[in-house]
Design a protein around this nucleic acid. Structure first.
Length: 700
DNA sequence: GAGCACTGC
């Protein structure tokens, strides 16, 4: 550890921190910033007056970095050095250095807005610009400027973002700390390939034949392309002349791969064997693969974006930013000098790539964040004027206000209600928080807790859709409950209740093809939610999962009513002549129930007249995912409320965006703030992909 | 009759 580059800068860093409330540190990979900054501050006495808190965007990072620091200081983890993540607080009264996820710090600041227990907050990896980091940046600015606070704030970022962060904090100093990366030679293509799967294949084979040993990391956009490339690579490598080059192992790597498949990339390859790791951007930051010397970068990433006008998410393939391209290239230089093959021309990189990734706050629904900020009760707080590093669009903020109004979290003047206050205490999206509260009133809380917990883990419940899996699924699994014709929420409830009746048996999950890890997560979430609800209700509630299941018919009715109130912002009406739906809480969109839904047409071939939905997402078409049938009588009052919405009043009477914010908005290149802003060439790319898909189907 | 990148409380 002694030769980490950052240690030579200790005096300079401490002096700068001494004289300034906020300091930006640009530290490249391998600089040691995540482990050393906290220890430096500790050595220089900053842990005497309070805790040094270091935030991380990811749980694993918080845990592993804390573990290393404890080791370096020779203390037991959980004492002087600890960490706090959801479900796991390993800190004690003795803790002086605390690693935590930024989500946990936000939660802490709900009960302690001044963050009094901290002397220093280090926002690590701020260049990743997670939604939570962006909220924290705004809160930190407020803390250091509004109060005569002695809090010190350090922000670590990437080269391309440092100036901007410094400007945000009234031109605070920027310190550069060199990294410990080996040089990476960048090689560009002359033009964009028509198919980057083919182009990656060719490049990978070239490397395999011509270049000395070293693993190859290939960045693709998604599971489909990864599987395609993996099988093509296997074919081609097999057909190479025996003995003409070394052996090869080809490994896919993406999030929906079961954990035991993911960890395969951590075991070193056999001697004289090259590994090809075909990955999504999970290998960009979340997972570090050792032994990589060559990187192939398609220049694309799959990104989720939200359109506040339609309330619709879409999953699009978009061009990466310069920061991402550099991050990918850096993966080749961790163990020795490497090479990065960019499958795009250098002029494209320089002239067309955005400097930094569009921050999540400009690509997400802000309902949860706005409720959080409202609940902080900052006296000087006007949500439309909140000082964001990159402000979200007015449409997006207004959309959040409208939705919060529909679910009773704020009143018609935009003030937080007592319902809203309680909702903010629950670690759930607002619609589910509202559902729990309503369920509590109606005597179906235990059922609602199960549904909310199941929805929190939904994507990790069902197994991946790899070919082997599909075959297995047809034979073995036992039937899951069907939601009794009432939809997916009821099915999720039934699944959880079955599991409960089977004493949370792991074998039961396997028999029903449910991911064990996902189901255990659900159980944890449910427990956490139950505890919070007990505390809120200040009395004992019946939160047992399966209290009196003979009365389930009644409970379903009550639960659906509670869901209808909770999802008043996500309501849809069936079309008269077919089974398509029209959304009611936004500019109306024609949408369909996702084919994976358990909702089925009745004897007359019709779906329910009204449904609430958990998610609206456009893939090949706009789909409602996870729907629940609701009754017209419940819907009417909501529609009246929709009609009454007055955005001017909701946004605090002015109806105008604050002058400061307006200036900032005009500073930004349009591309960055346009939520629909998928550049044309991507649109045509996606269009082309769809046509290829149709053509392929035609052949079948 | 489709198939979703990655995080987090």
């Amino acid at each position: 550890m002694a030769n980490l580059p950052i240690l030579q800068f200790e005096d300079q860093i401490i002096e700068t921190v001494e004289r300034n409330p906020v300091v930006v540190i640009i530290g490249e990979t391998g600089s040691g910033k995540s482990t050393q900054l906290s220890q430096m501050l500790h050595r220089r006495g900053y842990t005497k007056s309070g805790i040094v808190g270091v935030t991380q965007p990811r749980r694993v990072a918080a845990v592993s970095v804390a573990r290393r620091v404890a080791q370096e200081l020779g203390v037991q983890l959980g004492y002087e050095v600890g960490y706090a993540i959801r479900f796991e607080d390993r800190t004690s009264e003795r803790t002086r250095i605390k690693y935590l996820t930024d989500g946990v710090l936000l939660r802490e600041s709900l009960s302690d807005p001044e963050l009094n227990q901290y002397s220093v907050i280090i926002l690590d990896e701020a260049h990743e610009r997670s939604l939570n980091t962006d909220i924290l940046l705004g809160l930190m600015k407020r803390l250091v400027t509004l109060h005569a606070s002695s809090l010190k704030v350090l922000i670590t970022s990437a080269t391309l973002d440092g100036e901007k962060v410094s400007k945000f904090f009234s031109n605070c100093p920027i310190l550069n700390v060199p990294g410990k990366l080996y040089p990476v030679e960048i090689l560009y293509s002359n033009e964009r390939p028509t198919s980057y799967v083919e182009s990656s294949l060719k490049t990978a084979l070239d490397i395999h034949i011509r270049e000395p040993e070293g693993d190859v990391l290939i960045f693709m956009t998604g599971q489909d392309d990864i599987e395609k490339l993996v099988s093509k690579l296997e074919d081609r490598v097999r057909s190479l002349d025996e003995g003409s080059c070394m052996d090869a192992i080809i490994l896919p790597l993406h999030g929906s791969l079961p954990p035991e498949m993911q960890v395969r990339v951590f075991s070193p390859p056999p001697h004289n064997c090259r590994r090809f790791i075909v990955s999504t951007n999970i290998a960009e930051t979340s997972l570090t693969v050792d032994g990589v010397v060559y990187v192939i970068d398609s220049g694309y990433v799959k990104q989720r974006q939200y359109n506040p006008t339609t309330g619709m998410y879409s999953l699009d393939v978009v061009q990466i930013s310069k920061v991402q391209a550099n991050q990918r290239a850096g993966r080749a230089g961790r163990t020795r000098p490497g090479k990065c093959y960019r499958l795009y021309p250098s002029i494209l990189y320089h002239d067309d790539f955005l400097d930094v990734t569009v921050p999540e706050i400009q690509r997400s629904s802000l309902t949860g964040s706005v409720l959080y900020l409202k609940s902080l009760d900052l006296s000087d707080m006007d949500i439309l004027k909140f000082d964001f590093l990159d402000p979200p669009s007015t449409e997006s903020l207004e959309d959040a206000l409208k939705q919060l109004y529909l679910i009773d979290a704020i009143d018609e003047n935009g003030s937080i209600t007592s319902i809203g206050r309680t909702m903010a205490e629950l670690p759930l999206e607002p619609s589910l928080s509202r559902t729990l509260m309503e369920a509590n009133e109606r005597g179906c809380l235990s059922q609602a807790l199960s549904v909310a917990a199941m929805l929190s883990a939904e994507t990790t419940l069902l197994p991946g859709r790899s070919k082997g899996n599909e075959k297995k699924r047809k034979h073995t699994p036992l039937d899951l409950p069907d939601g009794s014709g009432l939809g997916d929420h009821i099915q999720l409830l039934q699944i959880y209740e079955h599991w409960d009746r089977n004493n949370y048996d792991i074998g039961w999950c396997k028999d029903h093809d449910l991911q064990v890890r996902g189901m255990l997560f659900v159980k944890d979430v449910r427990k956490q939610l139950s505890q919070i609800m007990q505390k809120i209700a200040k009395g004992s509630l019946d939160v047992r999962a399966n209290g009196r299941w003979k009365e389930s018919e009644m409970a379903y009715q009550k639960l659906r009513k509670a869901l209808c109130i909770g999802y008043a912002n996500q309501l849809a009406e069936r079309m008269i002549h077919h089974n398509g739906y029209r959304t009611l809480s936004f500019k109306p969109q024609l949408v369909q129930v996702h084919p994976s839904s358990v909702l089925r047409p009745d004897d007359e071939g019709k779906l329910p007249d009204y449904v609430v939905y958990h998610e609206l997402i456009a893939t090949s078409r706009p789909y409602l995912r996870n729907v629940c049938a609701v009754e017209i009588d419940w819907v009417k009052p909501i529609l009246n409320k929709v009609k009454k919405i007055n955005i001017n009043k909701l946004s605090g009477g002015t109806g105008h965006i604050g002058e400061e914010t307006k200036e900032k908005l005009s500073d930004l290149p349009k591309k960055e703030i346009n939520v629909d802003g998928v550049p044309d060439d991507h649109e045509s790319r996606i269009q082309a992909a769809r046509e290829r898909f149709r053509a392929r189907k035609g052949k079948k």
